[in-house]
Every structure is written in structure tokens, then in C-alpha cells.
């Protein structure tokens, strides 16, 4: 069974530090959410720009969720999960990208 001291430091930061992480996460995700809603609500962005801006904000926010709420980071001990998530991202990108490419292309030729 495990020795306590072989835990990587990043997992053993103590309650206060971990609470600060959650609070940071809450602030960051709230700010990103409000930014996205604000930009669209104010009509400041639209069309292709909106898609790019929203996509960027969404990716940053998803990363923030993983980082602050799900505690996934680049530490060595976390690589199993990180690899899994990155591989999933690759597969998801292939599936979504391919489907969108195929269906939009097909639509123009029907």
C-alpha cells in the first residue's frame, strides 16, 4: 500500500489551497461565461466573428473547468487522464470536423 510521502506535491496542497483553486475556478468560469453572454447580448459580435470568439471562449472555459474543478494539469502523475482527455479531443475533433466538412460540402452539391 502507499506511502503517504510518495504522493506528488500537487495532490497534497492542503484544504486552504484547494479551496482557493475552486474559488479561482469559479471566478474564471463566471467571467468567461459573462463575457460570452455579454458579447452576444450586446450585439457586439455576430456571424463568423461570433463563432470564432465563442469558440475561443468556450475552449478556454472548458480548459478552466478541467483545470480548476477536475484538477487535471500537466503534472507527471496526471498523465494517464491527460492523455485520455487529449486522445478524446483528437477523436472528437476528427468526428466533428469530418462530419461538418462532409455534410456542408454535400449540401452545396445537392
Amino acid at each position: 500500500m502507499s506511502d503517504d510521502h510518495d504522493l506528488p506535491r500537487s495532490e497534497d496542497v492542503g484544504e486552504a489551497a484547494e479551496r482557493r483553486q475552486y474559488i479561482r475556478g469559479a471566478v474564471a468560469t463566471l467571467a468567461l461565461t459573462l463575457a460570452a453572454f455579454g458579447l452576444v447580448g450586446s450585439g457586439y459580435v455576430s456571424g463568423g466573428t461570433a463563432l470564432v470568439v465563442l469558440c475561443t471562449l468556450a475552449i478556454v472555459q472548458i480548459a478552466a473547468h478541467f483545470r480548476f474543478f477536475l484538477h487535471i494539469d500537466l503534472a507527471r502523475s496526471h498523465r494517464d487522464d491527460l492523455q485520455l482527455i487529449l486522445f478524446t479531443a483528437l477523436i472528437v475533433a476528427l468526428m466533428v470536423g469530418g462530419t461538418v466538412w462532409i455534410l456542408f460540402d454535400q449540401h452545396t452539391r445537392m
Partner: peptide
């Protein structure tokens, strides 16, 4: 906890790509 946080992640994608994209045509 993982399940719940991931549902939130999915919702981020939903509000961004469904609702906000839809409202900013």
C-alpha cells in the same frame, strides 16, 4: 463529482455553440 463537472463542460459547449451562436447569426 466527475460526472457533474463534465455535464457542466458539455453545457459550456451547448450554451456557446447552440444558444449564443444561434443568437448571433
Amino acid at each position: 463529482a466527475i460526472y457533474w463537472h463534465l455535464l457542466d463542460v458539455v453545457w459550456v459547449a451547448i450554451f456557446s455553440f447552440v444558444f449564443l451562436s444561434g443568437l448571433a447569426p
